[in-house]
Amino acid sequence: MKKLIIFLFTIISLSSCIKNRNDEPRFRLRSNSPVKFNEKLKVYVDSDDDFYYTIIHPDTRDYEDVYETSEARGSDGGKYLAYTYDNDGNLREDSILVKVSPMSVPCSNPVNKLTSDAFNFEMDFYSVRGSYGWSSYKASAISSQGDFYLTFGGYNYTPTQSRTYITDQESGFNTSDEVSLRINKNGLIYYGVPGELVHMEIDSVDNKAITLCDYKVTTGTSNNPTLINVRLEF
């Protein structure tokens, strides 16, 4: 009888411990950061309880328990927050800083000069600058042969750190990961081909450099894109 009482007491004690453990959230926000642009990224809540957790992405989107993408983008870098409420209604939270490294550029180009060996496409820029328009940031370069305009997506977005961007057609729905390119070469208009990459470097004193390496542009009527190379510093 004594052994039975001890056994029951042990079971009750263990049940109480388990109950107490699950009554309060115990969790950590974790990630496989740092990752490179286009690599798999995972940010997740590490916990063995039954609480409902929300993860807040740096761009304010929210996810349940985990955020995962097979192709990390520049906007995926930054501070993530996870939160829940305990049984008394108190907010419990944890955060983590995620780093997405820009894709490296495999070529070097003359500064403020656009070239294309295959098509004899060349522009020497005498004025290069970045400016903020009505709703987006734009890098522009002016030459006697024509003009170069790179428009960044995302409402009120301004580049503040080194990043890799993806080209898309210019639209009011473009995200902060996307840029659009328009070149006026002696009256002929070229556009950046969607999916092409643009690399931006920003140093500690806000000097900027934009590099396009074997980047495809088209007039929109040709099936044979032109490859260009350019590095703009401003």
Rank of each mutant, 00 (worst) to 15 (best):
D76W: 00
D86Q: 13
K79E: 13
Y80C: 05
I11E: 05
L8W: 07
N20T: 08
Y83K: 12
T60V: 06
D86E: 14
T10Y: 10
G78R: 03
I11N: 06
P34G: 04
L29K: 07
I12M: 07
E64M: 15
I18C: 00
I55N: 04
P25G: 11
Y53M: 06
F37P: 02
K19G: 12
F9Q: 06
G77P: 01
R30A: 06
V66D: 06
S70I: 11
L14V: 06
T69D: 00
S15F: 14
G74V: 02
A72I: 01
Y83N: 10
N22R: 05
T84I: 10
K40H: 05
L14S: 07
E64Q: 15
L4G: 02
A72F: 02
Y67G: 02
V45D: 02
D23P: 03
R61H: 08
K36I: 09
S47G: 11
E24K: 14
S75G: 08
R30H: 04
V45R: 04
D86W: 14
H57T: 14
S15P: 01
K42S: 14
K79P: 04
D88Y: 15
P34I: 01
Y44P: 10
Y80E: 08
K19P: 03
K3W: 11
K40Y: 01
E68G: 02
E24T: 11
N20P: 00
E39L: 03
F7Q: 09
Y85N: 15
P34S: 05
I55T: 09
A82V: 12
I12V: 09
T69G: 00
L14A: 04
N87W: 14
N32I: 05
K2E: 12
E68H: 00
S70A: 01
K36A: 13
L81E: 12
I56F: 01
T69H: 02
